[in-house]
Design a protein around this nucleic acid. Sequence first.
DNA 1: AGCATAGGCAAGTGTTCACTTGCCTATCAA
DNA 2: TTGATAGGCAAGTGAACACTTGCCTATGCT
Lengths: 100, 100
Amino acid sequence: MADDLFKALADRTRRTIMDELAERSGQTLFEICSRLSMKHGLGISRQAVSQHLAVLEAAGLVETRREGRYKYHDLDTAPLRQITDRWLAPDPTGPQENTP
Amino acid sequence: MADDLFKALADRTRRTIMDELAERSGQTLFEICSRLSMKHGLGISRQAVSQHLAVLEAAGLVETRREGRYKYHDLDTAPLRQITDRWLAPDPTGPQENTP
DNA sequence: AGCATAGGCAAGTGTTCACTTGCCTATCAA
DNA sequence: TTGATAGGCAAGTGAACACTTGCCTATGCT
């Protein structure tokens, strides 16, 4: 569903999290928490960030990998292509069925 | 603010309106209403659509022009580039300060 | 003028959503 | 094994949001 994607992007804090993951991938929940606090002055609870990450993961924008007691988060920008494909399509001068 | 852009995109009905305007530009409020009803089976009031259009316009995704008692709506996909510029940037192989 | 059409303004309602609080599980070090 | 660190689950709260209802303005046709 594209619904999850746009809902995920709709929140400012989540977009900031994406920025941070874009700048430095493989961060843990606590790393993201402290970055949001330090760099962006966001006084937000750990649970809130965790929930945001869950939303981003549901949208396919974040992938996670567990190692021991750590859970690393990585950004995946691939779903964003849906947006450009939908409205910023290369305007093929007339609709085309598919391009194999 | 990019906030308006993402909030505007967050609603499914608004995205459908964008689709319709992409397919046929210069539609009036009533045209959009009947298209949503006919093609998409959306039982939605005229005011609701009007409010959606206002949100889209605030985000810069829709531009309007008045002629007599008609108000025509056109899609503007330019703001969508903010999204690709932010996370789908052409990967300059390392951060660069600015590109004048 | 009179009426229909196209659109706008504003208050009210129900739902969704972000965030918190409190407690619980799991991994690692001493 | 005890304690500390990293994370998860779930209920509760307040605000934002989509949508409706009712009424009002403006343009055009006859």
